[in-house]
Computed example of a mutant assay.
Amino acid sequence: MDEEPSLRERKKRETRQRISDIATGLFAERGFDAVTVTEVARAAGVSAMTVFNYFPRKEDLFLDRIPQAVELLAGAVRDRAPGESPLTALRGLALRLLAERHPLGGVGETFAPFWRVVVDSPALRARAREGVEEAERALAAALAESGAPGPDLLAALVVAAYRTVFAASVRRLMTGDALEEVARDHRTALETAFTALERTGLDAP
C-alpha cells in the first residue's frame, strides 16, 4: 500500500498547485506572453525563485500536467494487473481519464479556453510537443521492461494515436460542439485506436 505523503510534501503540492492555478488564471486573462513570472510570483505571494523551484520554465506553469502524464503512462504499464497486456492497461487508463473528465482525458468544460491559450503561444506549443516526446520516452522504457517486442515503435504508435484523438476532440470543443457528443465520439475513437494497436501484436512478449 502506498504511504500517505508527509505534511511537508502535502504543503509543497498545495503550493505548487496554487501557483499554477494563479498563473493559469493570469495567462487565460491576458495571454501567456503578456504575463511575467514576476507577476505570477507577486500574485501568488511568493518569490520568483520559489516559482522556479517548482517550475523550471515559465511554460511549465501552464502545462503543469506533463509530469503527471509521463507518470500515468509509464505507471499504467508497470502497475498493470497480472496477466494484463500493456495495451489493455493503457486502454483502461485512457477510458478512465475520459470518464473522470480528467485534464489529460481529452474532454472537459474548460478545455476550449485552455487550449486557445496554448494555440496562441509559440512557446507553449513548443513545450507541449516536448511533453509528448517525454511521455513517449517514458512509455517506451516501461514497455521495454514489460518485455514487449517493439517498445519504441509501440510507444510511438500509442502516443500518436492518443494525441490524434485528443487533438480532434479539443478542436471540436473549441468550435463549440456539445461536450457530451464530443465525449461519446472520443470514447469511440479511443476504442477504435486501441483495437487497431492490439492487432499489431507488439505488446505480447
Rank of each mutant, 00 (worst) to 15 (best):
V46K: 09
V51W: 08
S47I: 13
E59L: 07
R30V: 05
I66C: 00
V46Q: 07
A34S: 14
G45C: 09
V117C: 05
L95S: 01
V118Y: 09
R80P: 04
R42Y: 11
L73P: 06
A112D: 03
L95E: 15
R96H: 09
L97Y: 03
L87P: 08
F27E: 00
V117A: 01
V107C: 09
R80W: 06
R116D: 15
R57I: 04
A74I: 08
P122Y: 10
F114K: 11
G106K: 09
P82W: 07
Q68N: 00
I66N: 02
S47H: 10
F114I: 09
V132R: 15
R116P: 10
D79A: 14
V37P: 02
M49C: 02
G31T: 06
E130H: 05
P113V: 09
P113F: 10
S121K: 09
L97K: 12
D33T: 14
G108S: 13
N53Q: 12
G31V: 05
D79F: 13
R127G: 01
A74Y: 06
F62K: 03
T38D: 13
A34N: 14
V107P: 13
S47T: 15
T50S: 13
A94R: 14
F55N: 04
L72C: 01
F114G: 02
E59D: 03
A41G: 00
F55Q: 04
G31H: 12
P113Y: 14
V37M: 09
D64K: 14
G131S: 05
D64W: 10
V118D: 01
A43P: 04
L26D: 00
P82S: 03
R116M: 08
A34P: 03
E39F: 12
L63W: 11
A89C: 07
G108I: 06
P67R: 11
L90F: 07
P86K: 10
D120E: 15
F52N: 08
A128E: 11
E84I: 07
V107I: 09
F55T: 03
L104A: 04
A94H: 10
A123P: 00
W115K: 13
R65S: 09
R65I: 03
G45A: 10
A128N: 05
V117K: 10
G83F: 02
R80A: 01
V35E: 02
L104D: 01
R96D: 14
L139W: 11
P113E: 14
R137L: 11
L72R: 12
R42M: 11
A48Y: 03
A44I: 12
L26E: 04
F32I: 00
P122H: 12
